[in-house]
Write a protein that binds this DNA or RNA. Structure first.
Length: 366
DNA sequence: CGAGCTCTCACCACCAGATT
DNA sequence: AATCTGGTGGTGAGAGCTCG
């Protein structure tokens, strides 16, 4: 047995410890998702609060589509800038940079406020220079260093958050809970990238249940590709620009904006029969191992894979609880005690299966 | 053989109770 | 009173299997 059984685990752990959050969303992925929300952005103030405009394709997307979307304002704040930021800052002239003792401009976190975007020259390319041009072209626009490090939790960032209507970004996954909690606290609309495992987080699950949190349009199961730093080892391929691209197959879009697919019924074709749907040992529910095979005529509680969330229509189904390890304090009346089941991990015929979501059909066929 | 879909398990923080 | 021990809850910026 020379199989590297712990391979994935040690990787996860290293990732967890290192808290590498330098994953840059590709412009194409932003375009593919954002095209569905155009009408919801009109006259809105968009805030990208984890985005260095020099690096972020989110900023690039909203700056180039500012007029088409009819944005009222675009705000971005950067976390402590990347090492090459010194060079980038020189594009603005050194007047606004903070001088270090040796005379070189010191890179700082910055905020960018765009109220007006001039027509671009139409060469199709939009880069750092264009951003600089936009900022300089209109005195309605503003660029200035901020005092702190630009962390989304900082006072300055929160002040900007307060004026925003919609927050759009790819937050550091390691801070996802905290990040989401802040958005909820300030009652903001959001469209953000997260890990599919987040739907099983206790707090997130509650939001889904209350229909305050849903997946976006990009297929939940496919995962997404991100630009990663040059020294990143676990990359998937190198793109035509020489940038390393990593696949993160558990990433997807989360939002509380309107998403049409969550208003459409999942098409069901199977009818319930005892043989096809075993009962859980430790839940008062039947096991439905594939979302497509949810029986159209079953009235009681069913357990489905978490991929259900991506197709969930609150008018068709009710989410009643989660079937997962450690649900002791969640008042789950469908859980049957007396099993050694890690506090609730679903079991069928004595075997553990992956975590499930317990649902009920609101309008079962007779 | 590629895309779609499902699913890990080692480690850590925490805590209560036992032991020194 | 301080330390140890074992149980428990919680988690994860891919991997691996299946199926056509």
């Amino acid at each position: 047995m020379n199989k590297e059984k712990t391979g994935s685990n040690s990787t996860l752990h290293k990732a967890n410890k290192a808290k590498k959050d330098e994953f840059y969303t590709q412009l194409i992925d932003i375009e593919k998702e954002l095209k569905y929300y155009k009408s919801q952005f009109k006259d809105k103030i968009v805030y990208c609060n984890c985005d260095d405009p020099f690096e972020s394709n989110f900023f690039k997307y909203f700056a180039t589509n500012f007029n088409e979307l009819g944005l009222k304002r675009l705000i971005a704040t950067s976390y402590k800038p990347s090492p090459i930021a010194n060079t980038q800052l020189e594009l603005f002239g050194e007047s606004k940079t903070i001088k270090q003792s040796k005379g070189r401009p010191k890179a700082t976190a910055n905020k960018f406020i765009i109220n007006e975007v001039s027509d671009l020259d139409g060469d199709g390319a939009f880069d750092i220079r264009d951003i600089a041009e936009q900022l300089k072209a209109n005195k309605n626009n503003e660029w200035s260093p901020i005092k702190g490090d630009g962390d989304f939790r900082s006072e300055e960032s929160i002040e900007l958050l307060k004026q925003a209507d919609i927050v759009v970004t790819n937050p550091p996954f390691s801070l996802f809970r905290e990040y989401l909690a802040q958005l909820v606290e300030y009652n903001k609309n959001f469209l953000i990238i997260g890990n599919t495992n987040a739907v099983t987080y206790k707090e997130v699950f509650k939001l889904i249940k209350d229909n305050k949190f849903r997946t976006g349009y990009t297929n939940f199961n496919v995962g997404m590709f991100f630009e990663v730093p040059d020294d990143w080892e676990k990359y998937h391929h190198v793109d035509k620009n020489g940038k390393k691209i990593a696949r993160v197959s558990t990433s997807c879009w989360f939002t509380n904006l309107e998403v049409e697919k969550h208003k459409q019924d999942i098409v069901l074709y199977k009818k319930y029969s005892t043989g096809d749907y075993p009962k859980y040992d430790n839940y008062k529910a039947i096991e439905v191992s594939k979302v497509a095979e949810i029986p159209m005529d079953y009235k009681k509680v069913m357990g489905v894979p978490i991929t259900f969330i991506d197709k969930y229509n609150p008018n068709q189904f009710e989410i009643v609880a989660r079937a997962d390890a450690n649900i002791a304090n969640e008042n789950n009346k469908y859980h049957i005690g007396g099993f050694s089941d890690k506090g609730g991990a679903p079991m069928v015929n004595g075997k553990f299966i992956y975590k499930r979501i317990l649902i009920k059909n609101k309008k079962p066929i007779k």
